[in-house]
Simulated scan of single mutants.
Amino acid sequence: MNDRTSDEQAVRATALDYFEGWYAADLARVDRALHPALVKRSAVQVGAQPPSLTTKERMLELVRAGGGVEDRTDDPIEVTVVDVHHDVAAAVVRSAQYREYLHLVRTGARWQVVNAFWQLTDPAGEPGQDDAR
């Protein structure tokens, strides 16, 4: 296995830790997947005045409270690794509820999500949905 394939697998595993950890309220998985400097926004948040963002600390609070458990389905989570370049990577994650664009950074021996931009799979379904995640 070459380094590129290994990096793509590691990026995919990080994205799955983030998503599957969210759905299972698995704090350890989400914690290791997210960089301490995480900035997460939704399309709705960007349009807000002023724009808001979600931090790693806030995401961990939501996981502790079981925030993603009610969203869990048996539908597959699809991760597409768009690019890996040295210590940065980009991936797209598609789940039943969310479409999320991730930027990841290599931190030592692992990858972590440092930027995330998301929208509900059906954005017309819930006005104000960005407050929950």
Rank of each mutant, 00 (worst) to 15 (best):
M1D: 10
M1S: 14
D3M: 12
D3E: 14
D3Q: 15
T5V: 09
S6H: 13
Q9F: 00
A10D: 12
V11P: 09
R12W: 00
R12T: 15
R12V: 00
T14C: 15
T14F: 05
T14M: 05
A15E: 11
A15D: 08
L16H: 11
L16T: 08
Y18G: 03
F19H: 02
F19K: 04
F19M: 13
E20V: 05
G21L: 00
G21I: 04
W22T: 02
W22A: 02
A25N: 04
D26I: 00
L27T: 10
L27E: 14
A28I: 02
A28R: 09
R29W: 03
R29V: 00
V30H: 01
V30W: 03
D31F: 00
D31V: 01
A33S: 07
A33K: 05
L34R: 00
L34T: 08
L34G: 00
L34K: 01
L34F: 06
H35C: 08
P36G: 04
P36S: 07
P36W: 10
P36Q: 05
A37F: 00
K40W: 13
R41V: 15
R41E: 13
A43W: 13
V44E: 15
Q45I: 04
V46W: 03
V46F: 05
G47T: 05
G47D: 07
G47A: 14
P50K: 03
P51H: 06
L53H: 10
T54P: 01
T55R: 04
E57Y: 04
E57P: 04
E57K: 09
M59C: 08
M59P: 04
L60N: 11
E61Q: 14
E61I: 06
L62S: 07
R64N: 08
A65L: 09
G66R: 02
G66W: 03
G67M: 04
V69K: 13
V69S: 09
E70N: 06
D71L: 12
R72I: 00
D75G: 09
E78Q: 14
V79P: 12
V79M: 08
T80D: 14
T80A: 12
V81H: 04
V82Y: 04
V82I: 14
D83C: 06
D83I: 11
D83Y: 01
V84Y: 05
V84P: 01
H86M: 09
H86Y: 11
V88G: 03
A89I: 05
A89M: 05
A90T: 11
A91P: 11
A91C: 08
A91R: 06
V92A: 09
V93W: 02
R94D: 12
S95N: 01
Q97V: 07
Q97T: 12
R99C: 08
E100N: 10
E100F: 00
E100R: 03
Y101L: 10
L102S: 10
L102N: 10
H103D: 11
H103R: 13
V105S: 09
R106L: 04
T107K: 12
G108C: 11
G108K: 08
G108Y: 11
G108R: 08
G108T: 10
A109R: 13
W111A: 05
Q112T: 09
Q112Y: 05
V113W: 07
V113K: 06
V113R: 03
V114R: 05
V114D: 07
A116P: 01
F117E: 06
W118Q: 06
Q119M: 11
L120Y: 11
T121W: 07
A124L: 15
G125R: 15
E126A: 15
E126L: 15
E126S: 14
G128D: 10
G128N: 10
Q129H: 15
D130H: 15
R133W: 14
